[in-house]
Simulated scan of single mutants.
Amino acid sequence: MSRPFVLWLIWQNERTRQRYHVGNLVHHEGKYMFYYEKHAKRRGVIEALKNGYHLHLAFPDVNKVYVSERLFGPFERRLPDRRRPDFQEILRAHGLSDDYTNMDLLRATGGRLATDTYEFVPPIYVYGDEFDFEFHIAGWRYYEGERVLDRLQVGDDVTLQLEPTNEKDPKAVVVLTKQGEKLGYVPAFYSEFMFRLIDESGGTYKANIQFIHPNANPQLKVNVYVYGTLTPTMKKLQRDMVHDMELVVTV
Rank of each mutant, 00 (worst) to 15 (best):
W8N: 14
V45I: 13
R3V: 12
L162H: 06
K182D: 03
Q12L: 01
V121K: 02
L105Y: 12
E29S: 15
G52E: 12
V26N: 03
R112S: 02
D61S: 13
L49Q: 15
N208T: 05
V173I: 12
D150V: 08
N215I: 08
R151D: 14
N24R: 15
T101H: 04
N223F: 07
R17K: 15
S191T: 04
N63P: 02
D132C: 10
L176A: 03
T231S: 14
L7A: 03
R77P: 01
L197A: 06
E134K: 10
D116E: 06
I209T: 10
E200P: 00
L71D: 09
D104V: 07
G23N: 06
V158M: 01
Y100W: 14
T250F: 11
G202A: 01
L197V: 05
Q12F: 04
V186W: 02
W140D: 00
H21D: 12
E246K: 13
V248S: 04
A207R: 07
D244I: 07
Q88Y: 08
P4Y: 10
L91D: 07
F87E: 06
D116L: 00
V45H: 06
G111Y: 11
V248W: 12
K178G: 11
E200A: 11
L160I: 11
H54T: 13
P80T: 08
F34L: 05
V154R: 14
V126F: 09
D86K: 01
G111L: 02
V226R: 00
D132I: 04
K182C: 03
E246Y: 13
I198H: 06
V65T: 15
R19C: 03
